[in-house]
Amino acid sequence: MTETKQPSFRIRGLANPTRFLALLDKIMIPLVILTVVVIGVGLYMALIDSPEDYQQGATVRIMYIHVPAAWLAMFAYTMMTISALGTLVWKHPLADVSAKAAAPLGAAFTFVCLTTGSFWGKPMWGTWWVWDARLTSMLILLIIYLGLIALWHAIEDPIKAGKAVAILTLVGFIIIPIIKFSVDWWSTLHQPASVFTLEGPKMDNSMLIPLMVMAIGFTLLFTVLHFKAMKNEILRRRIRSMQMQAARQVASGNRAAATQAASPSTGPSASH
């Protein structure tokens, strides 16, 4: 990530991590304020202003966090897929950072989707968990997220880890729709269609609008967290390369290099 001097990275402005960090510092505070306002309005609409469902009663209020969480769970994976293409095809220096920052967020929102679904299912279905097609697919998505994170931590070299994860992300992107299809197929084979679906197809505007506001709020929240996590990751890689560079200088016999690294012609390692 410190290869800022290579000319190819200057093609697009944001490809330069330093410039990206500067932009982040500029837009972060307005973005946070916007997020807080939108989620605040959304919460008011969802918890106080919106009507109860004639069939599901007040539990419909769970929908206003359950559905946005489900949306983000899939959005984060799409984001990681685009980043994976960025890593493998365009070799964009920030793509790998973006994917790594998005994975824990995606896993967390998948977890939120599953738990809120469970809290919704208990009063509606009478059990905490049903092997309903949608819940099951979400559970598999969570396992895939955790597997990707595990692969990241297993491989020490961040560049190699990023590439391995990118390949697995792309394979997952192709296979996840097939998993979804087969779980749907399996679900209809094994149990009659559930009494009602969690999200009815037709929804009144009095519920649709709060849902949209919450979805936008959650997406903004995701963006803020993602940007901040990306910044952390850029700093982490910078630190790693600086530490390795310092270690190399020490190892090359020039014990004082760490303090004299200032002049570029000090040691042979400086040219590397």
Partner: peptide, 19 residues
């Protein structure tokens, strides 16, 4: 939230805690 207050609050609570 009627009879389901516990479930609704738990849902929002878990979400808030995770975030």
């Amino acid at each position: 939230f009627g009879n389901y207050a516990g479930f609704i609050l738990a849902s929002y609570g878990v979400t808030a805690a995770t975030i």
